[in-house]
Design a protein around this nucleic acid. Structure first.
Length: 508
RNA sequence: GGUCCAUUCGUCUAUCGGUUAGGACGCCAGGUUUUCAUCCUGGAAAGAGGGGUUCGACUCCCCUAUGGACUACCA
């Protein structure tokens, strides 16, 4: 009786994949992998008017980057035996089911134009195309059969609407919310098919494809909950109730400020990405930032997103994809919408930055250095990264934390100069130069020992000398242990920087 | 307006009738670091309101309030 678990992520290519959509894809993936099932990617492009070039590639690339692998469908390695997986390419499939519904009297043809419908809505408050109003409209239920035929032959555009019987309590079993009951009277006679482009609408295409593709679980956003009863009805009308998939409606991702669901423009408005990858709108030229380009690790994004609406029931916060697959369960998905907490997202990335192997971080950082025309051997880069990574959240912040390892300061932070550069400082720095010059074994331990001995012996103020030393080498009051820095940049460079500081800042 | 869904610290959440209501992010304080961060320790911080049910409710039920989704020839 247990059928194979098959889930699908079914976005429409109307733009870049939103972070909420990414989470839906992730949950589908986790559920599929946990149950040894299949993850399909189907493109729902039944609205020819809203197609955006590049959106499909974007979706595939984003899922790829995140490590959400597709077993079947668009973007999968092998084609799969339910092809095609783009609804626009499945055009010929749907007509048959439309006719089946029409013949059974469960759907009907309607000629009302958008203009006429709009007029009706203006005329009747809360107008809904349903059992109460369809007798007033231009459809095959009221028009004589020969006129319907004539109109179609004349080439008049029409749509096919589902015929919903009023006053029935329709039950939807939801894996997250339990039983949801909706009275059929509040559902309107939804359009299932339009003659203008010979394409079904979402509702029909979705049900037909899920049936044909043997989908076992429909895991989608909560925005679909109100139309779930319609889908249940469609399964019944088509005679597929016994193989109807189970439903799970996920809570939505909300704006961090104010109210409403997270949307396209919130990200750049509030200073964080809401898309996985950068996106440039081909029509408007508008650009939106993505997590990848913002310097995030895909693992951190996955971890962060997984916990926005789901938890393991333990105190664990850091999960690998494999752990998520093992632990995920739909009944631990929360029911209410989650506000998007960008600060926590940064923290996740910080964690991954600390825990990843040094070689990997150094390798990534090398790319940034190369862009700045800095060529360094990987051994030094690795040492630098080891010293500064803990103060960064992103690879991209590593440069700001470590530039002084590669280039001498070109200016000195004014406030630090005021605070740390005293009248006696130039003399002390000159002495320091001489002390350092004598050291043959120029490593962190040795230099620290000798320098501190000299400061103590000279009865200088330890803090005074040390801070001026740092200012001269780094340019400001920041960075790792000063002796670690000088051992890496070397004796000559250290002395050169000290000399420059004395010259430039001078007597202040 | 109608329908549906939801409601624990500022945020993400644990708790599946009996807990000093726990953890994490963020925030604040102290400590470490003769810098800045990191890090460590500590702290402040929550059951929307009202009725029930029960020996006992954050937990179950009802009402109210609030938030959200949907209400297209879009998905």
């Amino acid at each position: 009786m247990n059928k194979r678990v098959r889930v699908r992520f079914a976005p429409s290519p109307t733009g870049p994949l939103h972070i909420g959509g990414v989470r839906t894809a992730l949950y589908n993936y986790l559920f599929a992998k946990q149950n040894g099932g299949d993850m399909l990617l189907r493109i729902e492009d039944t609205d020819s008017a809203r197609f955006v070039p590049g959106a499909e590639d974007y979706i595939v690339e984003a899922l790829n980057w995140l490590g959400i692998t597709i077993d079947e469908g668009v973007g999968a390695k092998s084609t799969g035996n339910h092809a095609p997986y783009r609804q626009s390419e499945r055009k010929s499939i749907y007509r048959k089911y439309v006719d089946q519904l029409l013949e059974a009297g469960l759907a009907y043809i309607a000629f009302d134009t958008p203009v006429e419908l709009e007029a009706k809505r203006a005329e009747i408050a809360n107008f809904q195309y349903d059992a109460k109003t369809r007798g007033l409209m231009a459809n095959s239920l009221v028009l004589p059969a020969d006129e319907v035929k004539a109109r179609i032959e004349r080439g008049e555009q029409y749509v096919v609407r589902i015929k919903i019987e009023p006053n029935e309590e329709i039950k939807v079993q939801d894996l997250i919310r339990g039983e949801v009951v909706i009275n059929s009277s509040v559902i309107d006679d939804k359009v299932l098919f339009k003659s203008s482009d010979e394409l079904p609408t979402y509702h029909l295409a979705n049900v037909v494809d899920d049936y044909l593709m043997e989908i076992s679980h429909v895991i989608r956003g909560e925005e679909w909950l109100p139309s779930a009863p319609l889908h249940v009805l469609l399964y019944r009308y088509l005679g597929w109730t016994d193989v109807m998939p189970e439903f799970a409606h996920l809570p939505l991702l909300m704006k961090p400020d104010g109210n409403g669901k997270l949307s396209k423009r919130d990200g750049d408005r509030l200073g964080f990405p809401v898309f996985p990858l950068n996106w440039k709108d081909p029509k408007t030229g508008e650009t939106f930032s993505g997590y990848r380009e913002a310097g995030y690790f895909p693992e951190a994004v996955v971890n962060f997103l997984a916990l926005l609406g789901w938890n393991s029931g333990t105190d664990q916060e850091i999960f690998s994809m494999q752990e998520l697959i093992d632990l995920f369960s739909l009944d631990r998905v929360s029911k209410s919408g989650a506000k998007f907490d960008y600060e926590k997202g940064k923290w996740f990335n910080h964690k991954y930055l600390q825990n990843k192997p040094l070689e990997e971080i150094a390798d990534l950082f090398q790319h940034i250095l190369v862009e700045k025309d800095i060529i360094e051997d990987s051994e030094k880069v690795m040492k630098v990264v080891g010293l500064v990574r803990e103060r960064a959240n992103f690879i991209t912040e590593l440069w700001a934390q470590s530039s002084f390892f590669f280039v001498a300061p070109t200016s000195y932070d004014e406030r630090t100069v005021q605070k740390r550069w005293k009248a006696e400082t130039p003399r002390q720095i000159n002495e320091l130069i001489a002390v350092l010059n004598e050291i043959t074994e120029f490593n962190a331990e040795k230099t620290e020992e000798i320098v501190k001995e000299w400061i103590t012996a000279s009865e200088y103020n330890m803090g005074g000398v040390m801070n001026a030393f740092r200012l001269s080498v780094v340019g400001e009051s920041k960075g790792p242990h000063i002796f670690d820095i000088i051992s890496l940049i070397g004796k000559e460079e250290t002395i050169a920087r000290l000399k420059t500081a004395v010259e430039v800042i001078g007597g202040n």
